[in-house]
Structures are given as structure tokens and as C-alpha cells.
């Protein structure tokens, strides 16, 4: 009898959920929500958080070699911001009933993913410019759309994060612009970075709409508000012009302005490469994961000490 009431209540609450979604109201952590919605969000937000954190590695690779005191400070501050984004997103995911420790365990076991883009190496200083400009630039397009996502804590996290991302993008572009005004070697480095990061940046938006597996539910629940191809188009249109201004060539011979759609058409994306990297066979997949696991394990005694100290203090009070 009680069970039936429970079930009826649940059905009622889910209608409430549907109503809120329809009315563009935010879903909050204490609201009832379908289990599949909760799991979808945990997967997406934790992947987003892990991306912020794993992204610290390729950029950190140049921290000790930054070519000026100013650029060292800018890079330090940027990486620190990314760590902050990670923290903020882990907290948003925690409101859905999963702990940070558990999310990290899922990452280490390969059950949770992070953005594929960080499986590429940063080979020269220009790569730091390319990451800020292209990778953060692509992230902004994605994250601006997510400001309207249906889950309250996630949407609010996106508002806060987007402000910082646009700084990152400008600073990255500034590195590229400075190098394009520099010596022939610097120009070569900048163009080489552009050539290596352009296609992976386009892949950040995921497969074409025609073969994107998760879009159905995510759209229905208003977690996702714009399709992969729409977002990719937005990114291309704003970036191409910026490249031309500083004299960089986009490594796509088929790229051309399409007057009818008022946007650029681009050449075919090599999805076999994307699938390869996503399935673990990219240049840095193993390295990134080993690094994260190693330092997590290395810090265990410190976390244990901090916990023990906390307990000790609370029993004293």
C-alpha cells in the first residue's frame, strides 16, 4: 500500500519535473528528477570537471619555461583558474549525490572521461597561445550555450566560468599575435601550432549531429541547448577572421565563405583520428592518466594527515 503511494508520489514529482523543464525553470538538487537525468548530469559534469583538471597538465608543461615574468604570471593565473573551474564543477556534481573521491576513482578506472583535446602534446611555446585562443575559445562557445542548461548548479557554474574563459582566450590570442609579429622562427612556431591544434579543436564539439549518440535525451531535458554542428559553426565563424587578422593560415584548403548560410563551410573532419584518440590511442592519453594517478597516490599521506588532524581537532572541541 505504502509502496503504491510512493510510486504515485514519484509520478507526480516527475510531472512537476516535466513542468519545470517546459517552463524553463531550473531544476535544483533537492527537486525530484528522473534517475536517467541525474546520471546523465553526473556523467557530463564530472567529465567537464576532469577536463579542467587534466588540462592543467599540457599547460603546466610550459610553466617553468615561460619566456617572460609577465607571461609566467599570466599562465600561472590561467592554470589556477582552470583548477578553480574543476573545483566548482566537482561541487556542482556533488549536489547530485556523488563524492569527488568517487569521481576521481571513475576517472582512474577509465569509466569517466575528459576532453580529448588534452591528449595532444604542447610542443612549443606557441602551443600555449593556441590552447588559450582555440581550445578555450571552443570551450567558451560550448559553455555559453550551457549557461541555459536546465540544472541550476551547472548553469550557475557556467556563468562564473565563462567570464574567466574569455580572458584566457584573449591572452592566448595575444601570444599568437605577438609571435606573428616576431622573428621568422616565431612565426613558424605559431603557424605550426595552428596546424596541429585546429582540427582537434573542431573535434571538441563532438561528432556530427547525424551520428551523435546522446543528443536525444539531453535535448528533451534541456541539458543541451544547441547541437554539436551549430556550436562548431559558431566557433569557426568567429575564429577564422581572428586568424586572418594576424596572418595565420587555417590548415583547411576547403574552407570558404558561404554567402547563403552567412558562415564558413569547412573540409571533412578526420573522424577516424577522433575515434582513435577517444579510445585511448592518442599521443598523451596514457601519460595524462599516469600523471594524475601517480600524483593522487603521492598525495595520499597528506590527505590522510589532514583528515586525522580534522578529527583530532573536532574531538578536542
Amino acid at each position: 500500500m505504502q509502496q503504491t503511494t510512493g510510486k504515485m508520489k514519484l509520478a507526480e514529482l516527475e510531472t512537476n519535473f516535466e513542468r519545470k523543464i517546459q517552463a524553463e525553470e531550473k531544476i535544483e538538487p533537492r527537486d525530484a528528477m528522473p534517475e536517467a537525468y541525474r546520471l546523465h548530469l553526473i556523467r557530463q559534469i564530472s567529465q567537464h570537471a576532469h577536463s579542467e583538471v587534466i588540462g592543467m597538465q599540457p599547460e603546466g608543461n610550459w610553466l617553468l619555461r615561460a619566456p617572460s615574468l609577465r607571461s609566467k604570471q599570466i599562465l600561472l593565473a590561467k592554470i589556477q583558474d582552470e583548477g578553480g573551474h574543476g573545483l566548482y564543477l566537482y561541487s556542482a556534481a556533488e549536489t547530485l549525490g556523488i563524492s569527488r573521491e568517487e569521481m576521481i576513482r571513475q576517472l582512474h578506472e577509465g569509466k569517466a572521461k575528459y576532453s580529448n583535446i588534452f591528449n595532444y602534446p604542447t610542443l612549443t611555446w606557441a602551443d600555449i597561445g593556441a590552447i588559450g585562443w582555440l581550445v578555450d575559445g571552443a570551450a567558451i562557445v560550448n559553455q555559453v550555450a550551457l549557461q541555459r542548461t536546465s540544472f541550476g548548479p551547472y548553469a550557475r557554474a557556467m556563468f562564473r566560468i565563462c567570464k574567466e574563459e574569455s580572458f584566457h582566450q584573449r591572452q592566448g590570442y595575444e601570444i599568437m599575435a605577438t609571435m606573428m609579429k616576431g622573428t621568422p622562427e616565431q612565426k613558424k612556431m605559431a603557424q605550426d601550432a595552428m596546424n596541429r591544434w585546429w582540427w582537434p579543436s573542431l573535434m571538441m564539439f563532438g561528432p556530427h549531429d547525424s551520428d551523435s549518440p546522446h543528443s536525444g535525451d539531453a535535448f528533451k531535458w534541456k541539458i543541451k541547448r544547441k547541437s554539436n554542428d551549430e556550436l562548431r559553426q559558431k566557433f569557426i565563424d568567429k575564429t577564422v577572421q581572428q586568424a586572418y587578422v594576424i596572418g595565420l593560415t587555417i590548415p583547411d584548403p576547403l574552407l570558404k565563405w558561404n554567402e547563403d548560410k552567412q558562415g564558413y563551410d569547412h573540409g571533412p573532419i578526420d573522424w577516424s583520428e577522433f575515434k582513435n584518440v577517444i579510445s585511448g590511442n592518442g599521443p598523451c592519453n596514457r601519460q595524462r592518466m599516469e600523471h594524475h594517478k601517480f600524483w593522487h597516490e603521492e598525495g595520499k599521506w597528506v590527505r590522510e594527515a589532514a583528515d586525522a588532524y580534522k578529527k583530532r581537532i573536532s574531538t578536542l572541541n
Partner: peptide, 29 residues
Amino acid sequence: LSEWCSRAPMLEEDIALSNLALDHIGRAQ
């Protein structure tokens, strides 16, 4: 201090150590 970037025992401390590094580089400048 910058060497701790992505290597600290917890994310909060990663951020705190970057902050310390940032203060020092700013002072050096």
C-alpha cells in the same frame, strides 16, 4: 613552487601553491 602545478595532494592545495608562486613571481618582477 610552480613545480607543484597539477601535482599537489588535493586540488585546493594546487590552487593555493599556484597562488604562492604567483605572489613570488610578482614580487620578483
